[in-house]
């Protein structure tokens, strides 16, 4: 019964959140709509990342590579004059997915810190390619994007030059992507994946192929990270090697842990908290990094389930009384 009740409440909460996100551009200032766009994109990246950390117990330090691959694919296609947004999304996802399949194939046999290191190594290889292959990737400058294609949908011709219309493109895409990820997590696959985190041996005893499960999880995570990268490219009109650097890959880690790796939406909230905190702090000081560190310490020490996860747990306990 409890499970059902929670699902019911989660549904309502999600509904409220979606409605608020949908309506927010009507009330909040344009700059915050832009930030919200960024929060959604990074939130998608963090949720995709958390499919690995939160569900499979794998700490990937190379997510930036897939994000960057999505962004570069989009930028290159836009430069080449492709107009079909669906095609661009699809290509970005496929390229990231393929790369994730290859990286995953080699990486998932390792655990813990070794997994973190090998994903870091692969990620930095992609960074080196993006940084050095000047003829194709624009080298360290990256690729600027000049024209955003329109979207023909239901007989409408939509453009994305205004921050508001861009927001709705991102909002819709992220919503669909999160829904798909949610389905993945709650499918039998997601449940077995979670079991591999708890006990790898037991899963293999009952006939689960841990390696295969992990490769699939890594590939799905990479694909959605690539989608976030495509969105980021459209949103910022650029793809740069920075996206692939290991320091960019720490962002989803920080967001996921701030928000909480134990719940599906935790990382999304983590992204929100991260950006809002940043905006508040940089109003008063230029030492944002210092204060980010100061904030992270207690989060790591005292919120093992993350801020959102801890709040959710308190609510969970109250309900089950």
């Amino acid at each position: 019964m409890i499970v059902l009740k929670i699902k019911y409440h989660t549904l309502i909460l999600t509904g409220i959140l979606v409605t608020l996100l949908f309506l927010s551009p009507l009330v909040i200032p344009v700059y915050w709509v832009i930030l919200l766009s960024e929060i959604l994109i990074m939130g998608l990246m963090a949720v995709s990342f958390n499919l690995l950390l939160g569900y499979a117990g794998l700490l990937s330090f190379g997510q930036g590579a897939f994000f960057g691959l999505g962004a570069y694919t989009a930028a290159l296609m836009l430069q080449a004059g492709y107009e079909n947004l669906f095609l661009i999304f699809l290509a970005g996802i496929l390229v990231a997915m393929l790369a994730a399949l290859i990286v995953g194939f080699f990486s998932v046999r390792l655990d813990e810190i070794f997994f973190a290191m090998i994903t870091l190594a692969f990620g930095m290889m992609f960074f080196s390619i993006a940084h050095n292959w000047r003829d194709v990737t624009g080298g360290s400058d990256g690729l600027p994007v000049f024209n955003l294609p329109n979207l023909q949908l239901f007989g409408l011709d939509l453009t994305f030059y205004s921050p508001i219309s861009m927001y709705y493109l991102i909002f819709t895409t992220v919503l669909i992507a999160l829904f798909l990820l949610w389905l993945v997590v709650h499918s039998p696959f997601g449940l077995i994946l979670k079991a591999t985190r708890e006990n790898k041996q037991r899963v293999s005893f009952v006939g689960g192929n841990v390696r295969k499960l992990r490769i699939v999880a890594f590939t799905i995570s990479g694909a959605f990270t690539g989608l976030a990268g495509v969105l980021f490219c459209l949103f910022n009109n650029m793809a740069t090697p920075e996206f692939m650097h290991w320091s960019f890959s720490t962002k989803p880690i920080i967001m996921a842990i701030i928000g909480g790796t134990g719940s599906f939406f935790g990382p999304l909230f983590g992204a929100g908290i991260f950006f809002v905190l940043e905006q508040i702090i940089i109003r008063y000081t230029e030492n944002w990094m210092f204060f980010l560190g100061i904030i992270l310490v207690p989060v790591v020490l005292f919120f093992p389930q993350g801020v959102f996860g801890t709040l959710q747990n308190r609510f969970f306990k109250q309900r089950s009384k």
Partner: peptide, 22 residues
């Protein structure tokens, strides 16, 4: 978990690097 350990030391890195700059 290793992710918490890494993140904690990463936070210390941020504090030290920016602290020295300050």
């Amino acid at each position: 978990d290793v992710s918490f350990q890494l993140l904690l030391t990463f936070a210390i890195l941020l504090i030290l690097d920016d602290g020295v700059r300050m």
